[in-house]
């Protein structure tokens, strides 16, 4: 099923436009069938559209939305369809007709349906009641704060860093001074693929033999990343590494605009150096497998790998101003 991309995560605009296109398509079919003189009865059109919406919500979106939310959407769309079918008195009569025909048992066929419905509805309701009485054990929903409030300071290898004032010592311009503007100008481009800006430039290409300063440190950070971090955070820093399937919470996706893009660099430095165990309780420190990297890396290496993460994703760290 790789030809059909599911609507991933929460992409409301895509969902709404897809649904709108489908409904327009149905309307067009309905219209042309009517023109051709073989119009679909209002009852079946309404029921059909409603079932389509329910199926769309259930199967088209990934990860699946919970039943309770689908129930709300289902009810809202049922109301919409009801308004549509009851727009005018004749239309409403048209819609009701199949139901009334069955209730009255107009023909032998209608009678048969009436008998079947009379038996099936109580059975289905009873079955549903039985199901809901069975004890069911779904995975409990536990809401975790992904970016909890950081502490004022963090201590790494005996040195205390004040998160408000600390600076990445490798974020430097060719003169060796801290310069966020210069380094921001030499991260990967933000278009599809997030590739380095210019392969031929030793200011943009970390693998250029003449790379110096910032861009050389980026390469060193990348080497550390690909020896330590990619196992979980993935080769494209998108949180889908080798072992992403085994861990819960899943590894952070740095290419998502909601992670490092909206954090200060010192926050990331704190998270990397202290790891999951250093989180406050709202961050679920007990469940995170994020290592406290100060156990494995030097302070310099941590700063370099943080800088690499920004370079590779094409995001600028947030600043205090």
């Amino acid at each position: 099923m790789t030809w059909l991309k599911l609507v991933e995560g929460y992409m409301p605009m895509q969902m709404i436009s897809e649904l709108a296109i489908c409904i327009l398509f149905f309307a067009a079919i309905n219209f042309s069938l009517k023109k051709a003189g073989i119009g679909i009865p209002k009852f079946w059109a309404g029921v059909g559209v409603w079932i389509f919406i329910l199926m769309y919500l259930k199967y088209r979106i990934y990860p699946p939305i919970p039943f309770s939310v689908r129930a709300i959407y289902g009810t809202v769309s049922a109301c919409g369809i009801f308004m549509w079918v009851s727009g005018s008195q004749p239309e409403w009569e048209d819609f009701k007709r199949p139901i009334l025909n069955v209730m009255d048992g107009k023909t032998g066929f209608h009678k048969a349906i009436r008998v079947v419905a009379l038996v099936l509805i109580p059975l289905a309701l009873g079955g549903y009641a039985y199901q809901s009485f069975l004890p069911s054990f779904e995975e409990p929903i536990e809401l975790r704060t992904v970016h909890p409030a950081p502490p004022a300071t963090t201590k790494v290898h005996g040195k205390t860093f004040v998160l408000q004032t600390a600076e990445n010592p490798y974020r430097v311009n060719p003169e060796g001074e801290y310069d966020q503007k210069y380094t921001d100008a030499h991260i990967v481009s933000q278009d599809m693929g997030r590739l380095m800006k210019d392969f031929a430039s030793n200011e943009d290409n970390p693998w250029d033999p003449n790379a110096e300063g910032y861009i050389k440190y980026v390469r060193e950070g990348g080497e550390i990343f690909f020896q330590n971090c990619h196992f979980c955070h993935g080769d494209n820093l998108n949180g889908r590494g080798l072992w992403a399937y085994a861990f819960n919470p899943i590894p952070a996706n740095f290419t998502d605009a909601g992670t490092i893009a909206q954090l200060q660099e010192t926050f990331v430095f704190w998270r990397v150096s202290q790891g999951g165990i250093g989180l406050p309780p709202e961050g679920f420190p007990w469940a995170s497998v994020m290592p406290p990297w100060k156990e494995h890396l030097t302070t310099d290496e941590i700063w370099k790998v943080v800088m690499f993460e920004y370079w590779h994703t094409g995001y600028y760290p947030r600043t205090w101003e």
């Binding site: 693998w207 990619h230 080769d235 590779h312």
Partner: peptide, 12 residues
Amino acid sequence: GKRVYFTKCVWC
């Protein structure tokens, strides 16, 4: 292709 390779693939 070099630009892609040296951004994404070279690390491994």
